[in-house]
C-alpha cells in the first residue's frame, strides 16, 4: 500500500479538444484490435484466407460449368462478386466484437471511464475498416494470381475499391446495431448463417438473368448486387451488361444504398447505445 493519492486531474496528458480526444480514444481502441491480430495470427489468417477458399471452390470446382451471357471468363466474372462478399463477411467480425465487449462488461468499463463516448464506436470503425482493407488486398492479390485482371483505368479501379469499402462501411453499422441489440449467441449465429442465402441471392456467383424472373428481381434489389455490378463495370469485367432500371443505374445505387443503410443503422445503433443507460 505505497501508492499515494494524487488528484486525478494532475495525472492527465495535456488537454486536447473534444474532437481531439474522440480521435485519440478511438485510436486507443483500434490499437487494441491490432493487438488482437498479433495475439491471434491464426484467427486472422483464417479470416483472410476463407474468401480465397471460396474463390477456389466457385472458380475451379463449380466454375467449369458456368457460362456468362455475353461471353467472358467465369473467374473474371466471379472476382468482383467475391470482393463484395468479403466486405459483407466483415459483418460477422463487427457483430461478434460488439457483443463480446457488451457481454464481458468491457463496454461498461469504457462507459465508466472519462473517455469520449464516440471513441468506442470510432475505434470499432477504424479497426474493422482496416481489417477489411487488409482482406480486400488479399483478395485482389488472389484475383491477380488466378488470372483476374482490371481492364479499366487506375482511377476506375480505385473507384471500384472505394465502392467495395463503402459497402463494408454500411455493414459496419448493421453489425454494431445487431451487436448492441442482442447478447443472444443464437441470434448472432442466425445472422452468420443468413449471410449465405443473402450472398447467393445476388449477382455475385451467377448472372441474375439466369435465375427465374421473380428470383432475379429479388437478387437485383440486394444492396450487394449494385456494388457487384458497378465494380464489374469499373474493373471492365464481363457480366456487367445490364437490363432493368436498377442494373442500369448500378453505380448510383452502389453509392446511395450503402448511404441509406449507414444512416438507418447508425441512428438505430446510437439509440441502442443510449438505451444501455436505462
Amino acid at each position: 500500500m505505497t501508492t499515494t493519492v494524487i488528484d486525478p486531474a494532475d495525472q492527465r496528458a495535456p488537454a486536447l479538444g473534444r474532437l481531439g480526444w474522440a480521435l485519440a480514444d478511438g485510436w486507443t481502441i483500434a490499437v487494441r484490435d491490432l493487438q488482437h491480430w498479433r495475439r491471434q495470427p491464426g484467427q486472422l489468417a483464417v479470416g483472410l484466407l476463407f474468401p480465397v477458399l471460396m474463390v477456389v471452390m466457385f472458380g475451379y470446382v463449380l466454375g467449369g460449368g458456368m457460362a456468362i451471357p455475353g461471353g467472358g471468363d467465369y473467374l473474371d466474372f466471379l472476382m468482383p462478386g467475391m470482393f463484395a462478399l468479403t466486405m459483407v463477411f466483415g459483418l460477422e467480425a463487427t457483430m461478434t466484437a460488439v457483443t463480446t465487449d457488451a457481454s464481458r462488461g468491457v463496454t461498461d468499463r469504457f462507459r465508466s471511464l472519462p473517455m469520449a463516448r464516440s471513441g468506442v464506436v470510432l475505434g470499432r470503425a477504424v479497426a474493422d475498416m482496416l481489417g477489411s482493407v487488409l482482406g480486400l488486398a488479399v483478395m485482389l492479390l488472389c484475383g491477380l494470381a488466378v488470372g483476374w485482371r482490371a481492364h479499366g483505368t487506375l482511377a476506375e479501379a480505385l473507384a471500384a475499391v472505394a465502392l467495395l469499402l463503402w459497402l463494408r462501411f454500411a455493414f459496419l453499422w448493421l453489425g454494431i446495431f445487431i451487436g448492441l441489440a442482442t447478447r443472444d449467441p443464437g441470434v448472432i449465429m442466425a445472422v452468420q448463417i443468413l449471410v449465405w442465402p443473402f450472398a447467393f441471392l445476388s449477382n455475385a456467383f451467377v448472372p441474375t438473368s439466369t435465375m427465374p424472373g421473380w428470383l432475379g428481381a429479388v437478387a437485383e434489389v440486394n444492396p450487394m448486387a449494385a456494388t457487384v455490378a458497378a465494380t464489374r463495370d469499373l474493373f471492365g469485367n464481363p457480366g456487367a451488361q445490364a437490363d432493368g432500371w436498377l442494373a442500369e443505374h448500378a453505380l448510383l445505387v452502389a453509392v446511395v444504398s450503402p448511404a441509406v443503410m449507414t444512416l438507418v443503422f447508425a441512428a438505430l445503433a446510437v439509440r441502442r447505445w443510449q438505451r444501455l443507460e436505462r
Binding site: P8, R12, T28, R109, F110, M115, G119
Partner: peptide, 9 residues
Amino acid sequence: MFGRLHHLG
C-alpha cells in the same frame, strides 16, 4: 489501454 482511456500520457 485503460490508462490511455483515462487520458494518461
